[in-house]
Structures are given as structure tokens and as C-alpha cells.
Design a protein around this nucleic acid. Structure first.
Lengths: 128, 128
DNA sequence: TCTTACATAGTAATCTTTATAAATAGTGTA
DNA sequence: TACACTATTTATAAAGATTACTATGTAAGA
């Protein structure tokens, strides 16, 4: 557990902003001026492997990383990219249905809701 | 409606393999040796805008494109990347719940199930 | 002390996608 | 037919995120 690794994990635990790798890199570059971007990615991979952290990727855009606490889903703003957690009963049923229909051995599922956050709604209303 | 555009759309309609942009490019390069990759992307963007085609992106990997017929969900093999459709009642409720909890104006949601396809299960069993 | 294993830094390379500019083709009009 | 206008394609450069690679450093154990 190196200082860099600890700082990255700490950042993920304390910030609830679903940061990108670059967010983390920038936020910690004051404390670790020599830290490499590769270090951020390396550690995120390690955290993912042990299940501490979940990666959320959105096509071309940068992946976002979420420290895993309890099960929850995400809603994402199409306008500004903000990610907000919300709680909803876990959809276990869909996994067993999918498994029966396709013959897959199911491991997990991913559900995200997309829309416009309150701030961006207000901004869009202002324009008219 | 250029020949290239028609061929790309035709490929999406007839193939049910959820191809990547590169898949399409390679598949059609015999008929259109001079076709540019940009043309594939341009047309896929057009199809997306008019709602004919849905883009599915998975992080670093290439996006896959699906000709929109009826509403359905996808299950994806972690081992080989294969994408299979399956039917399940549309989860409208989660959209309204998310909207109420977060104040977002909801537009759509995305749900995918991940696991191992039958072929890859068999292959993994062989190894032991 | 020596060795082994692993983490990091720095940088190059990869890969997908987009942007840009020039060439091409189609359509409608005078 | 000639001309202008528009959209599409091609070719290539560029962007951006992530990974690969190599050398360096560092900590723990024998």
C-alpha cells in the first residue's frame, strides 16, 4: 500500500462525484507532482479486480469510477455528464429470465437511466 | 441514398450480429474498395439521429450497432463479446422512480446483462 | 547484504472516433 | 446545356483515452 495508492483510494471513498481517471490524476497532482497517469490506471485496475471499485464506461468519453458501498443504480445527465445515485430494488429477476432464455451463465447486470439534471433543465428553460 | 449508405443499412438489417463500425467496413470493403471508414461512421451517425439504429458502447472496445426493430435488451458474453437479444417487459417504472428521487427529466434507460455464453461455458469446462 | 517482487514514472504506442479539406456526384433552374 | 447549390464521399490528420513497455526505485525476507 503505497502513498499514491492510499491517496487514490481515499479520494474515491471521500468524493462521491464518480470521478474519471483524469479527475483523480489532477486532484492528486498537487500532493504527488511526479505521479504518473499510468499509476492511476494501474491502481484503479487493482481496485476493480478486488471489487472495491466499479468502472462505468460511456463509449468515447472517459470511464468513471465509483467506490462500491451498497448496491445502487446511476442516473446520468446527457447535458453535463453528472452522475447521481439512486436506490431501487435490485433487479435479480431479469438475470434469471435472461439466463433461461439465452443459456448464458449470468454474472451481473448494468442499468443506467439517462436524462437531464435539474440544473441543466433550468439552464435550458432560461434560453427560451 | 448513396450505394454505400444503402449497403451499410442493408448490412445492419440482414446481419443480426450487432456489428462494430469496423465489422461493417471490412464486410463491405469487397464491394466498395474505396470506401472510407469515415463514411461508415457518418452513416451510422445519420441512422442514429433518425432512430433507425442504436449504438451500444462498452468502454474502450468498439461500439456495436443494432438495427432497431422492437424493444429488447441485450446479454453480453464477457469471454467472447458476443451480444444476444432477449425479451423482457420494458422497465418503465424505474424511470419514473428515478425521476422522482433525483429530479431529473428522464429520457431513456440502458440495461445490459453480462455473463458467459453457452459456447464459452463449454470451452471453459473442457479446460478442466 | 543480497535477492526477489512489486509499484512507480515516463513515455511510446494503440485503438477508436472525429474533424477537416478536397474531390465527386446529384438535383433543380435558367 | 450550363451553372450553381447541396450533400456525400474519400483521404488523412488529429484528438483523446487507455495500455504497453522499460528503467528505476523501494520494501520485505532469507
Amino acid at each position: 500500500m503505497t502513498p499514491q495508492r492510499q491517496a487514490i483510494l481515499e479520494y474515491l471513498v471521500t468524493e462521491h462525484s464518480h470521478p474519471t481517471a483524469d479527475d483523480i490524476y489532477k486532484a492528486l497532482s498537487a500532493r504527488f507532482p511526479n505521479m504518473s497517469v499510468a499509476t492511476v490506471y494501474n491502481n484503479l485496475r487493482v481496485f476493480k479486480e478486488v471489487g472495491l471499485v466499479q468502472e462505468m464506461n460511456y463509449g468515447d468519453a472517459s470511464s468513471r469510477f465509483d467506490f462500491v458501498t451498497s448496491r445502487h443504480y446511476h442516473i446520468i445527465c446527457d447535458a453535463c455528464g453528472k452522475v447521481v445515485d439512486f436506490n431501487y430494488p435490485v433487479l435479480d429477476e431479469i438475470e434469471s429470465v435472461a439466463s433461461q432464455l439465452t443459456g448464458f451463465k449470468v454474472d451481473r447486470h448494468r442499468l443506467e437511466v439517462y436524462g437531464t439534471c435539474p440544473a441543466c433543465q433550468a439552464e435550458q428553460a432560461h434560453k427560451h
